[in-house]
Design a protein around this nucleic acid. Structure first.
Lengths: 328, 328
DNA sequence: TTCACTTTTGCATACGTATTCAAAATATGA
DNA sequence: TCATATTTTGAATACGTATGCAAAAGTGAA
């Protein structure tokens, strides 16, 4: 008893050659309508399914995208994950999921992606050493850094325009007549946190304003602890710009715990517009990252590179939108 | 210029046969230490990596696990996802991620899994028609339904012992001297919601107590709306057992909005012990699902089935733990 | 050294598909 | 109808690896 039935079996039953069977399943190949029907009928009867590995072996191409994620704990990422899988599925690509805890993607995982000869790679929120990135380039595997802006312009990256966002938020707070602000940063080696602060500080500097900066880590606990420290040190500003929503929720909870009224005494602005930001318990004013557009840009680039590799690099920045709720 | 270098190239440089190169990379094959060193040196020099597709083609086995998820929006699932990828990575398996929105996994996705000849499949929170499941069995692909208890005992399933959990929660509330309770269910066609309620109602029935049941949908919004309805209808019980944490958070926010004191006026118990349950703003009493153990059981079964397929079925239920916080 | 035995190696082949090339079938035009 | 152009088909081969088998190399005892 054969465990798997192959194109040859189908060919025999349909009374055609294996080549014809192959052509029926290979998009773009020419087959007459008659043989196509014969083949499909035979395939149906036998329960035939083309072996993806044999296909990849001979074409040297796969329909697999490597998706590397870091810190799926932040509710921002499940959204990104589902959007990517949905988008790739639309074009017939499957997702090989890799999770890393380190900032830098582990070589073991890179090996995996290369062994599977993935058609493309998306790296969210993590970085990789330049020589590792080069090994993808050497294999003509297109690569996108998602939610990261690269200092070197050798690779493609897609993120929200964090600089403009920081500026807009500063201007919004200034318009409220506030002058005494604080920035609570995420991990300080991330481009996202740095750019958001850069835009923010730029505008404040134009108005000759200083601001306090408190380093945190993009987690709820981090935001909570940082805010608590600030309150207890008696350094409460009139507004917080917090580098992401999940930290901002921590800040709000700390403020509530200490009996600080929001937005009356302090205003709080987050970043991402995660689902929780709209919960009645929080109603957080924030900056929406245009995930759909970011995903779209990423997929668009990957598809074009997979069709014909150029290795072109660019830093794409998509504009987000201010979402006013009740914490400002 | 060759784009990919293969075992033959390495063999030539190392002065051995292609077979020897293969044996160096095939775990379990015998090679002398001398040739191993020669091969590894040559491989290093050329940057050789075995082609996973050629391997799978000939062995008819893969190192890929299909992971099907539904509703990644619930913060419970990112935890599950990371734990699975970590566990599988430990044994050299990669994860092909599939996301479905429907309760029932789409045939398109099943096709994908079969085409890639995955070594095993984990299905979280979704079901599949029996004949689809059978097609996995026909291909000797082991299958685990995670966080689902199956009525038919034809397939392996792993979940928390929801029945016992429901009982324990009822008993806990009874001990507090409460008699007027309500259950807020998740999607009513899920075994998780049904079993939790079953255990709960069983114990209450033993004490000749009735309870109110309110159907909801396992989302924050659902919990919020349901609680609001209850309050406005003036049907406030003395305790809520809510079928999962994310809904319970919605309930808490609704209660807070309406000025109902927790736990003084109403007690609330959730289910899952997601990270947010411990946030200072909520401090939700809940039932912890032993994710590590559940994942461990799943992986253990899959590994043994992948080593030698038996198709054995079992319904594994792991005991969870009660987590007392401040909402009771 | 010789012989028997064990370990290691290389050769040849198979896995299931895509693809080239020439042959066959079909369509087109006069 | 025939000759020519076009489309469709089948045979053969290649992709990169694992593996059965026989030959070769190594091991140890007498």
């Amino acid at each position: 008893m054969k465990s798997t039935i192959n194109a040859k079996d189908v060919a025999k039953l349909a009374g055609v050659s294996q080549s014809s069977v192959s052509r029926v399943y290979f998009k773009g190949a020419k087959v007459s309508e008659k043989t196509r029907r014969k083949v499909l009928a035979a395939a149906e009867e036998l329960g035939y399914r083309p072996n993806e590995f044999a296909r990849s072996l001979i074409t040297n191409r796969t329909k697999i995208i490597g998706l590397v994620m870091k810190g799926v704990q932040n509710p921002f990422y499940p959204q990104v994950l589902t959007q990517f899988t949905a988008a790739f599925k639309k074009y017939g690509y499957s997702v090989l999921f890799v999770h890393t805890n380190n900032d830098e993607i582990e070589t073991e995982d890179v090996e995996t992606l290369l062994n599977y000869n993935v058609a493309g790679v998306v790296i969210t929120d993590a970085t990789m050493s330049l020589n590792v990135a080069e090994s993808f380039r050497a294999n003509h595997i297109p690569l996108v850094f998602f939610n990261r802006k690269l200092s070197s312009s050798d690779f493609y990256s897609v993120c929200c325009n964090n600089l403009n966002a920081g500026r807009a938020i500063a201007e919004y707070l200034l318009k409220q007549g506030l002058t005494d602000m604080a920035y609570i940063s995420g991990n300080e080696n991330t481009s996202t946190s740095l750019e958001r602060e850069k835009g923010f500080s730029e505008v404040l500097a134009q108005h000759n304003l200083e601001y306090h900066k408190h380093a945190s880590d993009y987690t709820y606990g981090g935001g909570y602890a940082t805010a608590l420290d600030i309150i207890e040190a008696g350094e409460l500003p009139s507004a917080f710009f917090v580098a992401n929503d999940i930290m901002a929720l921590g800040v709000l909870d700390a403020l509530q715990k200490k009996g600080v009224a929001v937005p009356e005494q302090v205003k709080v602005i987050g970043f991402d517009n995660i689902e929780m930001a709209s919960w009645p318990g929080y109603e957080l004013t924030t900056w929406e990252q245009p995930i759909e557009k970011m995903v779209e840009e990423t997929v668009k680039y990957l598809l074009s590179e997979m069709a014909g590799y150029t290795g072109s690099a660019q830093s794409v920045e998509v504009e987000g939108t201010f979402i006013k709720r009740k914490t400002t």
